[in-house]
Design a protein around this nucleic acid. Sequence first.
RNA 1: GGCGCCGUACCCAAGUGGUAAGGGAGCAGUCUGCAAAACUGCGAUGCAGCGGUUCGAACCCGCUCGGCGCCUCCA
Length: 491
Amino acid sequence: MLKIYNTLSGKKEPFEPLVPKTVRMYVCGVTVYDYCHIGHARSALVFDMIRRYLEYSGYRVEFAKNFTDVDDKIIKRANEQGVSCDQITVKYIQAYHEDMGRLGVRPASIEPKATEHMADIVRLTETLISKGLAYHVNGDVYFEVAKYSDYGRLSKRRLDDLQAGARVEVDERKRHPMDFALWKSSKPGEPAWDSPWGPGRPGWHIECSAMSIRHLGETFDIHGGGMDLIFPHHENEIAQSCGATGKEFARYWIHNGFVQINQEKMSKSLGNFFTIREIFEKSEWSEAETGEMLRYFLLATQYRGPLDFSDQSLKEAKNAVNGFYDLFARLAESDGNASGDEGLSQAIERCRVSFRGAMDDDFNTPVAIAALQGLRSDVNKLLDCGLSTEARKVARGEFRSLGNCLGLFQLDKWQFGPFVVPIGPATETDTAMPITVKSVLADADIERMLQERNEARSRKDFKRADEIRKSLASHGIIIEDKPDGTSRWKR
RNA sequence: GGCGCCGUACCCAAGUGGUAAGGGAGCAGUCUGCAAAACUGCGAUGCAGCGGUUCGAACCCGCUCGGCGCCUCCA
């Protein structure tokens, strides 16, 4: 039985979707005015993992993740660069897909944009006005917080408390300082849409209410995002949506913790962030390996806790993943022995039970990973006894199947060693397509050298054998000799 | 001022009342011509500190220390 920590109740609750076997989930995506950093990556990855595990558990998942493509920051960025807002949003939506794709984050089943839902937004705002929950002032429309008695139930705040520390509000047209904009009249030159209140654009919170209701219905199962969205964004979404429909909005609220640098929140304003593409560009490993390493790193901590980002942690994640692919390399070989076969199904069952137990307990990925590490250890031992080709396939398949929930262990080939930094001054083409020393050695060359080395070994010419080992090592190739006299190699 | 989070071995990280998972790194051993991988063993009498509740606490309560988040755009 899956249990999920619900921010709304502050407790872990048994998860039961409204419609059996179907989960409807909405996650707040990003405002598209810049490249994503690791914090965005964590959030995207956490909900990707949740989606994957729900699917593994037999649910059909209707997963909506929005792009905020109307916003002050977008307008500002467009003005700075002298381009249209569209040019900005198109560019960064594409960049989002590229970056997340490299991380193995699957696209959501629906990726709505605010600009494509203006009719829904206007209609929702009209409903709120007609119900007396919102008011119109000079082309702006505000939600009247005092009219929604449950305001603060998600973030556990009372309106009185909020006022105490709140910055002085300059806008005296508001009836309460915490009233927030549903619709903002546009200034000349800003993107604008027609409305009953004149040309304008939606406030930030209303789009998510409109789009989630449109695509998932008035009441749906899961709503998620980063911790920082709890207030005011999600609090306001609840007020708007429940106010308009009179029904419960999202039933389970899930929020992921921050990525930190030296114990501090990674954020644009602090300037202490690393973009996803920056990590890939600086990585000494291949794109596929870097993606998997990052994934492993980001899922090695439970999603609600803080996660400190550092080169060392990344390196440790890489080493940990290497261990799995070492095993997969052994599993891809064969010997005639099958004495370990009968222990395999038990080991797999043991792993499955603890993997599912962990994931069912509020998506405890670190414990789930520990279960996979247990299987890795068990299979290595069984391999020492001998496993049939069939059993090896079964074992590899299990890693693929469980690993798929985390987006791990799907690669056929894993390259180990670091890429060698290109020699000489970097050029445009160098950064786009790094030429590495190790890639100069073709597989066929390596095989040829290995064969020569093994011939040398068989005639006990270890001096020659070690020369070849050393030569390959200088290209980043590591040789492992097997008991049968042949060798495997890895980069 | 209000609401909330974090502090577990060299590092990462589970555990939230029954006597400290797992990984990485390190060290030792087995195996190996050497090496690598794998396997085996070693590693917190203690979970920031101090009190309290309890037969029993890392886990509950109180206080203290250190770090951080939200209350303004923020994953």
